[in-house]
Design a protein around this nucleic acid. Structure first.
Length: 558
RNA sequence: GCCCGAGUAGCUCAGGGGAUAGAGCAGCGGCCUUCUAAUCCGCUGGUCGGGGGUUCGAAUCCCUCCUCGGGCACCA
């Protein structure tokens, strides 16, 4: 039995009690939280529902708890109900009822943990969105890992998600970029304010391959050619880096196409119709202060050129038009100044800033002793980090901290293959469990046993460590739903560490395969062996499902 | 100055109205003739930054102060 199922039982019992007039309640709460108590003395699961409903029901918490406890005691699968403290209801399950979960998980396979709490929402998740003028670097790394993990979480909870990358390919920076490439092409130093780094020389080489005569052309002619080829090549490299990092984007939107397609002008017109645009001092302004921004923002400068914000506006309206109910932005703390204007923009566009737009601000990360990349310039390149630390270690580490805590990654730790390194701890648990299963098979233990029941007897999974492991496995779907709802992938990582610990502890005490006697004789395969194999494989499944949510591999051997 | 975020064990950090505040590392001490010891078991370790408030109950919510990090463009 999972906590969700138990929660449903508590709810129905509550409804029955209300219907029978034992409890004076008009409404039954949607959510009855059932939690694993910290202390095992408090049963398998506990709920504080009696404390929460005591006031509306006009009863003392313990009295209400008593009413519910009597009814709960009659429910199937529940072996004991106790009232404790101010009015907690502590519930103990039948061993068989708890153990049944092992089989349910194996049968649900990769769908175990998936839930429908976000069904019906269509989410646009924008993250990374690095400039196409250079390689991805440490500043993008955390958002790539976190954004992709969040995307997986949201999908697992039933949402439709589009991972989107916004390419800032308009504006002056592209010409600066091209000038840097041209300078390298001619063997000159990059101009003041240009882009350093050897990658510019490599891009120049690519330009030369496509246009061997480029050096002979005059600069005004050569500039757009160099710009386009270098841009294309740089984006190709960025995509490759992202793929190496296991991050996939569904849509790349180019800022330039917003200009060229006229969407920018349309956006200004639309916002003007909505009554939020105003001409002042020769410029065109969006009155974002109407919606809580601390100052109005210019859309079209006095010289007639649109601002970056105008493109943002057009882009937002474009996303809106594409039908996304929620637009999520993942931004670094260095962009926190954008929150006010983006929210105000959403409001000006007619959206509800509580539900239709969400801006997640994350603190910055650093890596102790990371070397600036000569190749990539004055930055720490993501490619180098991947090569140095590995995708799994990086993604797991970045995935295990809340976005709003600043982190300083210790490379020695990420490279270490010990208990200190959480990613190895979790992956090792998975590999170990896979090995245990292989060993069990080799000794004739199969999940499909000789009997009709497949040799699975849930009631045999009654060892203390088994109860503990089953309880952890049971928490997974609730955890996924909650992590998705809170947009906090790190909860998955923390959960996996707990689960791995529960597995290791179980493994140390409970043999799966039959043991060998002192005289070297192998004991016969029993239903206990088979049942434990189910539990082992259920753990493999949940570890794998959880690691997959983080975009981290689950090796079968280590 | 204004706006975000953080402050929890020696260190790195979880926990964000519920029961005795947790984990890993570090320190001390135990388990390998049987499925992976990259594991497990025990002990030690706390003014949850300070002060007020809200309530049956506060690390958690509110106010205030202190310290640290980040941000405050007709840049892209």
């Amino acid at each position: 039995m999972t906590p969700e199922e138990l929660s449903a039982i508590v709810k129905s019992v509550l409804a029955e009690a209300a219907a029978a007039g034992d409890v004076a309640l008009d409404t039954i709460p949607d959510e009855v939280r059932v939690e694993r108590p910290k202390s095992r003395a408090h049963g398998d699961w506990a709920t504080n529902i009696a404390l929460q409903l005591a006031k509306p029901a006009g009863m003392k918490p313990r009295e209400l708890a008593e009413v519910l406890a009597v009814r709960l005691n009659e429910q199937q699968g529940i072996s004991a109900v106790e009232i404790a403290g101010p009015g907690f209801i502590n519930i103990t399950l039948d061993a068989a009822s708890a153990g049944q979960l092992a089989r349910a998980i194996v049968e649900a396979a990769e769908t175990y943990g998936q839930n429908q709490t976000l069904a019906g929402s269509s989410i646009n998740l924008e993250f990374v969105s690095a400039n196409p003028t250079g390689p991805l670097h440490i500043g993008h790394t955390r958002w790539a890992a976190l954004g992709d993990a969040l995307s997986r979480l949201l999908r697992a909870s039933g949402a439709e998600v589009t991972n989107e990358y916004y390419i800032n390919d308009a504006g002056n920076q592209m010409n600066t970029f091209a000038e840097s490439v041209l300078a390298r092409l001619h063997g000159d130093e990059v101009p003041e304010g240009g882009y350093p780094g050897e990658y510019i020389s490599e891009l120049a080489q690519t330009v030369l391959e496509h246009h061997p005569d480029i050096k002979d052309q005059d600069r005004t002619h050569a500039l757009p050619i160099a710009r386009e080829i270098a841009y294309e090549e740089q984006m190709r490299r960025i995509r490759t880096t992202l793929e190496n990092f296991g991050v996939h984007f569904d849509v790349f939107t180019s800022e330039r196409t917003l200009h060229e397609s006229g969407k920018l002008d349309d956006a200004v017109a639309t916002l003007r119709e909505q009554g939020h645009v105003e001409d002042r001092d020769g410029a065109v302004w969006l009155r974002t202060t109407d919606s809580g921004d601390d100052k109005d923002r210019v859309l079209i400068k006095a010289d007639g050129e649109p601002t970056y914000f105008a493109a943002d506006a057009a882009y937002y309206l474009d996303k809106r038009q594409r039908g996304f109910t929620e637009k999520i932005y993942l931004l670094g703390a260095d962009h926190h100044g954008y929150v006010g204007r983006l929210k105000a923009l959403a409001a000006c566009a007619g959206d509800d800033t509580e539900h239709n737009i969400e801006i997640l601000i994350g603190q910055l990360m650093s890596v102790k002793g990371a070397k600036l990349s000569k190749r990539a310039g004055n930055i720490i390149a993501l490619d180098d980090l991947i090569e140095w630390l590995g995708t799994d270690a990086l993604r797991y580490t970045l995935g295990r901290y809340p976005a709003d805590s600043a982190i300083d990654v210790d490379p020695e730790l990420l490279r270490s293959k010990t208990n200190d390194n959480p990613v190895f701890y979790v992956q090792y648990a998975h590999a170990r469990a896979c090995n245990a299963a292989r060993n069990a098979h080799a000794q004739g233990v199969e999940r499909t046993g000789p009997d009709d029941g497949g040799g699975f007897d849930a009631g045999l999974l009654s060892h203390e460590r088994e109860e503990e492991l089953l309880a952890h496995l049971a928490k997974f779907p609730t955890l996924v739903a909650r992590a998705a709802q809170l947009r906090e992938p790190h909860r998955v990582a923390r959960y996996l560490e707990d689960l791995a610990a529960a597995y290791h502890a179980w493994y140390a005490k409970c043999r799966i395969a039959p043991s060998v006697t002192e005289s070297g004789e192998r004991q016969p395969v029993t239903d206990l062996n088979r049942s434990r194999l189910w539990l082992n494989d259920a753990t493999v499944q949940v570890l794998r499902n959880g690691l997959d949510l983080l975009g981290v591999s689950a090796p079968e051997r280590m």
